[in-house]
């Protein structure tokens, strides 16, 4: 479905990618391309991870206004990072290998997010507003605890954490990039294999059970996938705010369908287009100093508000 629209999105993305890699690159191509290539890879990994995590989350919660970021998944990741530095001390922490740290973080993240969001989602499911509000306050709380711990940590150690708590694409660690790419690909592969099951789960709990899919078991699997995807993107560039909400809402507009195969593809393309295109325009064309994420937060926030205000109430 919507094959032409998907192809159009892919062509646009290719154009932006080419523009991002080529424009303004003078002289030493051997130097510029790998440098920009790494950054581009990070942008695309993050874009696809966030859009996929958001689609998954919206499917298991049966609504279109919740996203992992709004519910505080990435805030949880930053908190876990901070707690580790607080417990181990920055010296110890820096000594761990990047990849080792990363895998350990993801392990902790899995446990924490399953415990926290697993209970929250199964308890507050009936009352959407309460769940959204709980999620937002939870995110605020997690951020507050993080910033509290960051202040309690020695000011020298503080700098180590600070880098992780705000989205930026300036410094990308190559070793981390490889691990992130691997993990993301695995999670995406599993998600793709689940696409038909997701279609069934989206029909609602009763219909899903009737068709032989247990919602609880699936929710567990999907929460694991979301945790991995959010961990990867947060570790690479930091919290991405309203990006997920923005791109998935756009995907629903551009490819209005219940088919997850289409939805996963289109939201991933739109997400990559938003990040690569946005970065390209902001950085190369407009020469602005504001990070892309701030712009995304303004636009995404407005989209969220519109979605809330336009919802039909029973």
């Amino acid at each position: 479905m919507f094959k032409r629209r998907l192809i159009l999105l892919a062509v646009l993305l290719a154009a932006c990618t080419a523009g991002y890699l080529m424009l303004g690159a003078q002289g030493n191509w051997g130097f510029v391309l790998p440098f920009r290539g790494n950054k581009l890879a990070a942008l695309i990994i993050v874009a696809v991870a966030i859009s996929t995590a958001t689609v998954l989350f919206q499917t298991i919660t049966h609504n279109r206004i919740l996203t992992p970021s709004i519910m505080g998944f990435d805030a949880l990741y930053v908190l876990i990072l901070t707690v580790q530095i607080y417990v181990l001390g920055a010296q110890e922490y820096v000594h761990l290998s990047q990849a080792g740290q990363f895998v350990a973080n993801i392990g902790l993240m899995l446990v924490a997010s399953l415990a926290l969001f697993g209970t929250l989602l199964s308890r507050a499911r009936g009352d959407l507003m309460r769940m959204v509000l709980t999620g937002i306050i939870l995110a605020v709380l997690l951020r507050a605890v993080t910033s509290f711990l960051q202040r309690v940590i020695d000011p020298n150690e503080y700098a180590v954490v600070q880098g992780a708590s705000f989205a930026r694409f300036t410094r990308i660690d190559v070793e981390l990039l490889a691990v992130a790419a691997l993990l993301t690909c695995c999670a995406l592969l599993v998600t793709w294999r689940l696409r038909h099951r997701l279609d069934v789960l989206a029909l609602g709990d009763t219909a899903a059970i009737n068709l032989g899919e247990a919602p609880k078991h699936n929710m567990f699997v999907i929460l694991v996938l979301i945790s991995v995807l959010v961990s990867v993107s947060t570790a690479l560039v930091g919290p991405m705010g309203f990006l997920g909400l923005l791109v998935v809402s756009l995907a629903h507009l551009i490819t209005p369908t219940a088919s997850h195969a289409t939805l996963l593809l289109s939201s991933a393309l739109i997400s990559a287009l938003t990040l690569v295109g946005g970065q390209f325009i902001l950085e190369r064309v407009l020469g602005m100093s504001t990070p892309l994420i701030v712009v995304i937060d303004v636009v995404g926030g407005i989209v969220f508000l519109i979605l809330l205000l336009r919802r039909k109430y029973r």
Partner: peptide
């Protein structure tokens, strides 16, 4: 709850601005 939610998002947008 919606009122509170809208308030927080509204505040968030202004904060991002």
């Amino acid at each position: 709850m919606l009122v509170s939610l809208v308030g927080m998002i509204y505040g968030g947008i202004l904060g991002a601005c």
